[in-house]
Simulated scan of single mutants.
Amino acid sequence: MAIMIKSPGEIEKMRHSGRLLRQVHDYIAPYVVAGASTMDLELAAMRKIDEFKAIAAFKGYHGFPAALCTSLNEEVVHGMPNEKRVLKDGDILSIDCGLIVDGFYSDAAVTYAIGKPTPAVRKLLDVTKASLEQAIQEAQVGGRLGDISAAVQEMCEAEGFGVVKEFVGHGIGKNMHEDPQVPNYGPRGKGPRLKAGMVLAIEPMINLGKPEVRVLADGWTAVTVDGSYSAHFEHTVAITDKGPQVLTR
């Protein structure tokens, strides 16, 4: 496994990419309302990306057609924007976006509740987001990759949620996907030793019901097998001697 170690200068370039990506997410957020289509969000994102003269990392990646992954309700990841997918009260929507700025990637995802979610769905969102924050705290020099994975699994399974195993986080840098893979499950104390200069995209994907997923006929959209709602949060995180630094905060 060839894990790329980034120099302080490269991490700063990734931080710049991450800051612009956060501004894209912040720009989209007011559009995530009942009555908006997922294509409305795509068009908003592209306006901001074009303003920054950045590159939409997902668009064209292995043929993916859009800048955003917009995954609605039981869709786990890789949902495609569509003018016919109109948000309504009670929905949840994961928005995943990546940028390339000055040759370096950033990657981040947020799941929104449209209107007033049920208490169970609200808890799913809160716990998934909290598990990401806990996993980030495990991204310490000298630790093990499994410590990050276990933090997500322990928190989410304790609340009865299903941890998706078919899709995982990843290293990131001059490429969207680099070594190592970052699962959201597994034992502590296992896997590669964490070193300063590693940069990871940590991304819990957690289901309200069972963990199993399947991919639809479009070849991209992953959905829960049992039809339960799914939440997804993600940050790009640099491991440093001063502790984890979230580059997409």
Rank of each mutant, 00 (worst) to 15 (best):
P244S: 04
V141K: 06
A66H: 05
G219F: 11
D26W: 14
V246A: 10
E138Q: 13
G143Q: 02
V24T: 04
I114H: 04
A217H: 12
V215C: 13
F52E: 00
D179G: 10
P119R: 04
G35W: 04
F52D: 02
M198Q: 09
E83I: 12
S94H: 03
L21K: 05
Y61N: 14
E75L: 10
G197T: 10
A222K: 07
E138H: 09
D147Q: 11
N175P: 04
V223H: 07
N184W: 08
T236N: 01
A108G: 05
F233C: 00
A44H: 08
G162V: 07
A201K: 09
H62V: 07
A56S: 15
H78K: 04
A2Y: 12
E157V: 11
I28F: 09
S230Y: 00
V152M: 11
E157W: 11
I95D: 00
N73D: 07
D26F: 14
G162T: 06
K242N: 11
G173K: 02
F161C: 06
F58E: 00
K59I: 03
K84D: 13
E12Q: 14
G90F: 02
G79N: 05
T224G: 05
L125E: 02
L200R: 03
E138N: 10
R249I: 09
V215S: 12
L43M: 12
V164P: 00
E178G: 06
R193K: 14
V246S: 06
G103C: 07
M198K: 03
D226F: 05
G9C: 10
V213R: 11
V86Q: 05
P119D: 05
P8D: 13
H78I: 02
G171S: 04
V213E: 09
S149Q: 05
A67W: 02
P187Y: 03
V168G: 15
G146L: 07
T224H: 05
R19I: 14
V24Q: 04
M39T: 15
K6H: 14
E83P: 15
A108H: 08
L145H: 01
D107Q: 09
